[in-house]
Amino acid sequence: MSDRKIKTVVVDDEPLARKGLRTRLERHTDVEVVAECQNGLDAVSVISKNRPDLVFLDIQMPGLNGFQVIHKLRELNQPIPMIVFVTAYDSYAIKAFDIHAVDYLLKPADDARLSDALKKVREYYSTQHQDEQSRKLVNLVAELTGDDCEEILRKLASGEEIETNPYPDVLAIKDGSEVTRVAVQDIQWIDAAGDYMCVHALDGMHIMRKTMKELEQELNPQWFVRVHRSAIANIRFVKKLVSHISGEYHLILQNDTELKVSRSHRDKVKAAMKM
């Protein structure tokens, strides 16, 4: 292994947990803690900016959990660093992630267990296997369902099967003799225009002949929510939900598109935005 230190980020919503882990890490001279994060959103920003070699990532966090942090980094085309999961769950449950993460730590982590984890980190680091580990981790996150992380771990602990995502990653939109493949994750919103659907994606608008109900059934409800009789929005592109004096609600997308939210869909929209 070279003399270059392992750039490390500690992510945990509990201040005492971050402090305790950092104190233990400081005893290892080849590890340099370059940042701490108290939530998943900060973690995405800090990891993208600092490009650390290693992240101690808490799984259970408000906002973005540990799995969602990895998914967001993937969406932003950011390299995935070596990951050591940190969790309060028992070893039986988290061992299912051994082949995807470098290692895991149970709270509160003791010195011996941390040393074992860092030994694995050094082995990955010195043999350049972190790329393989990152690929496996990304595959795991891509395969998980929309269940939150606690539910996933509960299923693992009880031996239940975790089903893969049944929703397509790509919509094939036919226009005459041409078929355009549109990445579902790039779709911002969809609205109806007579017998056609206007699919507004990052690369422009696409017209497809399908009913709103058919499209709604094809799209992952974790991300796509019906906001009106004739409109579906991708929550990942929503900037804010605005209420007017009249009692009407409107969604404002990141590109400043404004979508009216009907009364019958208001509660569902609020739930999707975790309000």
Rank of each mutant, 00 (worst) to 15 (best):
117 A>T: 04
117 A>Y: 02
119 K>E: 12
120 K>P: 11
120 K>H: 15
121 V>R: 00
121 V>P: 04
122 R>C: 08
122 R>H: 13
124 Y>H: 12
124 Y>N: 06
124 Y>E: 14
126 S>Q: 11
131 D>A: 15
132 E>L: 15
134 S>A: 15
137 L>S: 08
137 L>C: 10
138 V>M: 11
138 V>A: 14
140 L>K: 07
141 V>R: 02
141 V>D: 00
141 V>P: 03
142 A>L: 11
143 E>A: 13
144 L>C: 01
144 L>E: 05
145 T>C: 09
147 D>R: 08
149 C>H: 08
149 C>E: 09
150 E>F: 14
151 E>P: 08
151 E>L: 15
153 L>P: 04
153 L>Q: 09
153 L>G: 06
155 K>M: 14
155 K>E: 04
155 K>W: 12
156 L>F: 13
157 A>I: 12
157 A>H: 07
159 G>D: 04
159 G>I: 12
160 E>Q: 13
160 E>G: 10
160 E>L: 05
162 I>L: 14
162 I>K: 03
162 I>T: 05
163 E>F: 02
163 E>G: 05
164 T>H: 12
165 N>I: 02
166 P>T: 08
168 P>G: 03
169 D>R: 00
170 V>S: 05
170 V>P: 02
170 V>Q: 08
170 V>F: 12
171 L>D: 00
172 A>W: 03
172 A>S: 12
173 I>L: 07
174 K>T: 14
174 K>Q: 10
175 D>S: 13
176 G>W: 01
177 S>D: 13
177 S>P: 02
177 S>G: 10
178 E>H: 10
178 E>C: 06
179 V>H: 08
180 T>G: 02
180 T>F: 10
180 T>V: 07
180 T>Y: 08
181 R>P: 11
182 V>Y: 00
184 V>S: 01
184 V>F: 02
185 Q>R: 07
186 D>I: 06
190 I>S: 00
191 D>H: 10
193 A>H: 11
193 A>M: 12
194 G>F: 03
196 Y>S: 06
197 M>C: 05
198 C>Q: 04
198 C>Y: 06
199 V>H: 03
199 V>W: 01
200 H>K: 11
200 H>L: 07
201 A>T: 00
202 L>R: 05
202 L>G: 04
202 L>C: 07
203 D>P: 04
204 G>L: 03
204 G>S: 00
205 M>R: 09
206 H>L: 08
206 H>A: 09
206 H>Y: 14
207 I>T: 11
207 I>M: 06
209 R>Q: 09
210 K>A: 11
211 T>H: 03
213 K>L: 06
214 E>H: 12
214 E>Y: 02
214 E>M: 02
215 L>C: 07
217 Q>N: 10
217 Q>M: 05
217 Q>V: 01
218 E>A: 06
218 E>R: 02
218 E>K: 06
222 Q>Y: 05
223 W>R: 04
226 R>M: 01
227 V>E: 08
227 V>C: 04
228 H>N: 13
230 S>N: 08
230 S>Q: 05
231 A>N: 01
233 A>C: 10
233 A>E: 01
234 N>K: 06
235 I>F: 07
236 R>M: 10
237 F>C: 06
238 V>W: 07
239 K>I: 13
241 L>C: 07
242 V>Y: 03
243 S>F: 11
243 S>M: 15
244 H>I: 14
246 S>W: 11
247 G>A: 08
247 G>R: 05
247 G>Y: 03
248 E>I: 10
